[in-house]
Every structure is written in C-alpha cells, then in structure tokens.
Amino acid sequence: MSYPLRPLHLAAEIGGPPRYDPVHHTGLAQLAERGALDFVTLGDSFARPGPDALAALSRVAPATRRIGLVPTVTTTHTEPFHVSSAVATLDWVSRGRAGWCVDVSTTAAEARLFGRGPAAPAAALWEEAGEAAEAGARLWDSWEDDAEIRDAATGRFLDRDKLHRTDFEGAAFGVRGPAVVPRPPQGHPVTVVDGTAEQARETAARHADVVLVRAGTPERTAGIRDDVLRRAAAHGRDPGTLRVLAALTVDLGDAESTPEPGLESGLPLAGHGTYYRGGPVDLADLITQWHRSGAVDGFHLTPITPGRDLERIVNGTVALLQHRSLFRTFYPGGTLREHLGLARPANRYARRGERV
C-alpha cells in the first residue's frame, strides 16, 4: 500500500539508567530542541526504579520552548481520571507541547506492588489501555474551550452549560466526569502507542496519533504500518492523521565507523526492538533511505548512551539531514500537534450540545 511522502519527523528518547538530577533530563531535552526534533520521550515502568516520567517532564517543560514532551504512562494499575488530569496538566505547563506514550504493566511483580489483583494477559491489558485512552479523550473534551468565564462582576467562574459528563463505561472501570482540569491547549495531547506487538495494534489503530514500529527492514516496517492504517480506516479514522515512526536503538560509540556486518541495509532484531551501530553519517543515510522508500514518516531514536549518542545524533546525523534539506532547521509552530502536522481535534460534546 502506497502513501504520499510526508515531511520527515524525528524524535528521541532521553531516558536510560535512573537519574534524579533535573539538570540531566533538562539538558538532553534542550539538546534535542536545538536540533528541532519533534519530541523527546522519557520511558517509565513500575518494574524498575527511577523518577516518574510525567513529573520529570513537567519539570523540563519551563526550561524548553518548542520541543514536544512525551512521557511513558502505564494504564495498568492506574486511574484514567488521574492520568488524564496529569497529562492535561503537562500540556498546560508546556503550552501545548505534551503527549503521552501509552503502555501496560504485564508482570506479576508489578501487580504485587499495588495488590489489587493478579497480572492479566497482554491482550486484556491493551484492551484496557484503549479504554483508558478513550476515557482520557472524553475527559479532555468535557470542558469546552470557552467554559471559563472568570467574570468578577457577576462572580461566575464557569459556564456550566459548557461542562459535560463523559459517562464512560469500560470493562474494568467507569468515568463520569467532567474533568477537573480545563481542556488542554492542544485539545487532546498527542497519543503515542508502540504498535509492534499484535496485542497493541488495535489500540494504536483506534487511539494513536503516532505509532512506533520496531522491525528490522523497511519492508517489515511498512507491513506493520499498513496493518495499523487498515485497522484505523476500519474504525472510521483517516489514515492520513496517523504518523508512523520506526523505533531504533542507536549506538554511535565509534563515531564514523562502518556498521557491523548485516547492518548496512537491514537491522537485526535485538531485545525489544531494532539496534543500529555505526556512525552519524551512516545513520543519516539509513534514515534517508527508509523515509524515501515510503516505509515510515520518520524515526524515534533511543541512544544507548544518552549523554554521548544524543549529541552525535543532533550535531551529526540531524545536522547532515538538515544540510541535505531533508529535515527542518526551525519549528514552524508552537505545539506538538503543529510539529507533526496534526489538526487540533474538535470537541465532541460541543458539537452535540450535551449538558451537565
């Protein structure tokens, strides 16, 4: 299946071994911003120690101006109402640059941390994640954009006619609403889902704005992309509103060395994704090849050593792509949705005129 070639999108992970110094994550986000990357992600999991990714990026937000901020947020063992409020808050404090990478917690050890029940199968967890994403979107819409009046003369703070109940009922939870945080600047913060695993693809197709794909060749990547986009169309979505990024772990330790045998044109699977080792120039060539083939809209790069490799990505790979006029040199807009070429969603309740 062929799709029109879109502008190249680039993102990077700024996590790694646990770091508790805010200067660390802030410095990496500022470095990525100097390269005009679309967004940075910060991984998180209940299975390992480390700071809360969403809270950490809320600290990074005032120290950056344009780059998108996308923490990993698990929908397992958490409450959708609280998650949606926290993500909306990140969108407010970043002035419209927030997203969230939806994830699930699959292990028995993580379940024991909360004590609510045993670990569930991945398929059930991803179904719950989809419901959490739907509930979050409804909560973000539960305030119309002009619901706040702030009229001191009359003492009216809100127009109650512009607040709406969500009345969402899922298999594992129900959410009445409305939210306690006003509608975010972007309407809906950007939703990111890793759609590589079969169990996650339906959630990606129904709810994601950005889909990450981990596969070893452009052909395999394009196959997963086509599957997700077909499913999205079956749900009544315009496939053109999804951005598909190849997820790649990057080791630029030998700055200008040639890739190891087998890495020149195809990337072997390594652990939870694909792995690249080589120099910044070779990485730029690979990104160019995959993007021009139409396999992906861009790349999400995870530096194996963030402090070292992100600098080489920005000052080497990205600079070369910019020199070739393949990647922008500045941000044309201010929000993450604008970086990605995505429209601000209309408010579903405002159209229907529902009332509290």
Results as ranks from 00 to 15, higher is better:
Thr217Ile: 10
Gly273His: 14
Ala346Ser: 13
Ile67Leu: 04
Gly170Met: 06
Val104Met: 01
Glu198Leu: 15
Thr64Ser: 04
Glu79Gly: 00
Pro80Lys: 12
Leu310His: 14
Thr241Gln: 09
Pro4Ile: 08
Arg237Ala: 03
Asp52Met: 09
Val318Lys: 00
Thr107Asn: 07
Ser2Glu: 08
Arg138Ser: 02
Glu128Tyr: 03
Pro332Met: 12
Ile149Phe: 04
Ala86Asp: 12
Gly115Met: 14
Ala129His: 11
Thr74Leu: 01
Pro49Gly: 03
His291Val: 00
Leu283Gln: 09
Gly223Met: 02
Ala204His: 14
Val87Arg: 06
Arg95Thr: 14
Ala343Ser: 11
Pro121Gln: 09
Ser257Asn: 07
Leu321Thr: 11
Leu283Cys: 08
Ser293Glu: 06
Arg138Ile: 04
Arg337Phe: 08
Val314Glu: 07
Gly170Ile: 10
Arg59Gln: 02
Gly273Arg: 13
Arg351Gln: 14
Asp167Ser: 13
Gly266Asn: 11
Glu264Gln: 15
Phe81Lys: 07
Val228Thr: 08
Thr166Phe: 09
Asp251Gln: 10
Gly35Ser: 11
Ala109Gly: 08
Glu169Val: 15
Pro345His: 12
Asp254Gly: 10
Ala246Gly: 07
Thr191Cys: 08
Arg156Ala: 12
Ala86Arg: 15
Arg230Ala: 06
Arg95Phe: 09
Asp227Ser: 12
Glu202Thr: 11
Arg97Phe: 10
Thr317Ile: 01
Ala172His: 15
Arg231Ser: 07
His272Ile: 01
Leu286Gly: 02
Arg95Tyr: 03
Arg337Cys: 03
Gly333Arg: 05
Pro268Glu: 02
Arg324Trp: 09
Gly115Lys: 14
Leu269Arg: 14
Asp285Trp: 06
Gly16Phe: 03
Val102Tyr: 08
Arg19Asp: 11
Leu269Val: 12
Arg243Asn: 05
Thr154His: 07
Glu79Lys: 07
Leu90Ala: 06
Val104Pro: 05
Asp145Ser: 15
Thr166Trp: 04
Pro345Cys: 06
Gly298Asp: 00
Leu163Cys: 12
Gly341Phe: 05
Ala132Leu: 07
Asp297Leu: 00
Arg6Phe: 04
Val296Asp: 09
Leu69Gly: 04
Gly253Ser: 15
His77Leu: 04
Asp254Thr: 11
Val213Asp: 06
Ala120Arg: 15
Gly216Asn: 10
Arg160Asp: 08
Arg355Ala: 05
His188Asp: 06
Thr274Tyr: 13
Ile224Ala: 08
Glu198Ala: 15
Phe114Glu: 00
Glu128Ile: 09
Thr41Asp: 01
Thr72Trp: 06
Arg34Val: 04
Gly279Asn: 14
Arg225Cys: 02
Pro303Arg: 06
Asp254His: 13
Val23Arg: 12
Leu286Phe: 01
Leu163Tyr: 05
Ile313Tyr: 00
Asp103Phe: 10
Val192Met: 01
Ser325Lys: 04
Glu256Met: 03
His291Cys: 00
Ala246Arg: 08
Thr26Tyr: 03
Leu113Ala: 04
Ile304Pro: 02
Trp92Pro: 02
Asp38Trp: 00
Leu242Asp: 07
Thr335Gly: 06
His164Asp: 13
Ala29Gln: 10
Pro306Arg: 08
Ala147Lys: 13
Val73Leu: 14
Arg66Pro: 03
Gln289Val: 07
Pro62His: 13
